[in-house]
Simulated scan of single mutants.
Amino acid sequence: MYNYKELIVWQKSMVLVEKVYTLTASFPPEEKFGFTSQIRRCAVSIPSNIAEGTGRKSKKAFRSFLEISNGSMNELKT
């Protein structure tokens, strides 16, 4: 349906992932498997769901993956 790499939202979310990894690298070592891991997983989930949604055969399915991506964004904000 779409080439996800051409979507500005995907491109910006990849920049966000890079920034999250850079920021969390300075977190205390005892947070590596807790807080740091959770933040990184929800950040990576954003572009991942956008990319997965583009591979679906309908706009309805794509929208569903965008909603999941938006949920991950809200999780990251929290």
Rank of each mutant, 00 (worst) to 15 (best):
V9C: 11
I39Y: 07
N49I: 05
S26Q: 13
A43N: 04
F27Y: 15
Y2E: 11
I46R: 02
W10K: 01
V20K: 04
C42S: 15
K60R: 15
G53A: 06
I46Q: 00
T22R: 12
A51S: 13
T22F: 12
I46K: 04
N70W: 12
N70K: 03
A25Q: 13
T22Q: 14
V9Q: 04
T24K: 08
K5S: 14
S72C: 14
I50E: 00
N74T: 02
L23K: 13
E18D: 13
V20W: 05
E18H: 10
I46H: 04
L23Y: 15
G53N: 02
S26H: 08
L16A: 05
R40Q: 11
K60L: 12
E30K: 13
S48I: 06
V9E: 08
R41Q: 04
N70S: 08
P28V: 06
Y2P: 00
K57T: 12
P29L: 14
L16E: 03
F33C: 01
K19D: 08
K5H: 13
M73D: 00
I8Q: 03
T78S: 15
S69P: 05
C42H: 07
S13F: 01
Y2V: 04
G55Y: 08
R40H: 09
K32S: 12
K77W: 06
N49G: 05
A25N: 15
A51N: 10
C42T: 15
K12Q: 14
A51F: 07
S13E: 02
V15Q: 14
E52F: 08
N74Y: 08
M73I: 05
K60G: 13
T78K: 13
S45F: 00
K5V: 06
K32M: 11
Y2F: 11
T78N: 15
S13C: 03
E18N: 14
I46L: 09
F33I: 00
N70G: 00
V15K: 11
V17T: 12
T22N: 14
Y21F: 13
F33D: 11
M14T: 08
I39K: 01
A61M: 03
T22P: 04
S45K: 01
T54R: 10
T36G: 10
Q11E: 01
K77E: 15
A43Y: 03
E52H: 09
F62W: 10
T22M: 13
E6G: 11
N49V: 00
